[in-house]
Amino acid sequence: MDDNQIIALFLAQDEKAIQAAQRQYGAYCFAIANGILNDPGAAEECVNDAWLKCWQSIPPQRPRSLKDYAGRIVRNLALSVRRADAAQKRGGGQVALALDELSEVVSGGDTPEGALDRQAFRAALDGFLAGLPERDRKLFLRRYWYLDGTQELAKRFRMSRTNVTTTLHRLRVKLRAHLEQEGFEV
């Protein structure tokens, strides 16, 4: 069953949609969640919650790609769980490391409610990514979207860990400069 057929099942509110989505993208979503949580049980829960979110949001949403849509949902869910865990002094892992790294980009100050234009910020991020060489763009997203560890990145991109670390640092510096140039007070 392809992406459009599964989306059609969601739109028709057919319960087979969730089974089909799980069969097609369950492993992908689980990998994202487990990468963030490093806890298979919690990751499984996140994936199930993600299908529920999909069920609730489609319709009215009509995603272009169910894989991307579900992936983003499961990532956000996993991050929420991660943040809740961090509040309870549990966990750590790649999320904590990624957050530490991203502290270089942001000031850490509170953003007034409604002060951030999420659409504009997303456009700025897209602009930043568009300006990167393909390899750097993928490296950045594997680190801060998929939350891969540096060792995994080194293997995937056939780079040394040192090279991965220095490249990511360079990208963070570049991101901060780009966001400031776009007028964001990060």
Partner: peptide, 18 residues
């Protein structure tokens, strides 16, 4: 901006890149 806010916002980037 907090670092976790940035991490969440990165989740909204263009799907094609992801």
């Amino acid at each position: 901006m907090k670092n976790y806010e940035l991490l969440e916002l990165i989740g909204d980037v263009n799907e094609d890149y992801v």
